[in-house]
Amino acid sequence: MDSESGPADKPSGGAEELEALVSTTDVELLKRAWRNEKAAPEILRFETHLIDRVAGQLQLMEETVDDFVETGIDPLTVSLYQMDLDRTQFLLRSYLRVRLQKIEKFMFHILKTNELHDRLSKQEKNFTRRYSEVIGKHLEESVLLNLPDNYQSLLRQSTTSEEDDMVPEPQMDAFVVCRAREYVGPSELQDSNKSLATDLLMEMEPGELFFIPFKRIKKLLENGKVDLV
């Protein structure tokens, strides 16, 4: 499993290469993806390539640590490598966990919104399919099938509802803290709701922090112009 990018990508072997490998930006990228995912109210696009690379690197690191243990290298050195490995592993697991939590919470919203469903990884889609059957069956058997005919829908309160009014959705106007990575002009901060944007003309300088409703920086986050903190 070779890593695809990064200037420090060299054939592996000695300790220096490992060190170089560890300090590639991939771990930093993962940290960024993890922070963004944690702070964003809705589910973000799955970082397929990044996660593949990180998984490959983790395996490599594990093997190296094992080699160290076998060849009897100084235990302190081993434990330092181990610590680094554990940190990255935590990041990866936590990233996947945060996503699963969001999927569980907004399951039906994600299932009926193609744009969101496309953001999931293949495995997450499988999970969503399996789990939605489980919770659907559970709610139907305990509640819905015991109600009168017109009130049995999982997504609507009754057949007279005009839209799906029983589906939890993420709060897109929740405030988030974000940091600009590059200059962002006032026109880019436009919201689909124009009136909101005009009463608050602003621009972002790189590195500046902002406290702002998520929906106004959603596009910027997707384009990598801002990061959530």
Binding site: L100, Q123, E124, N126, F127, R130, Y131, E133, V134, I135, K137, H138, E141, S142
Partner: peptide
């Protein structure tokens, strides 16, 4: 709910 727990466990384990 018991069934639900089993089903959820299975879905998560599969993932």
């Amino acid at each position: 709910e018991k069934e639900y727990f089993k089903g959820y466990s299975a879905a998560l384990d599969a993932y």
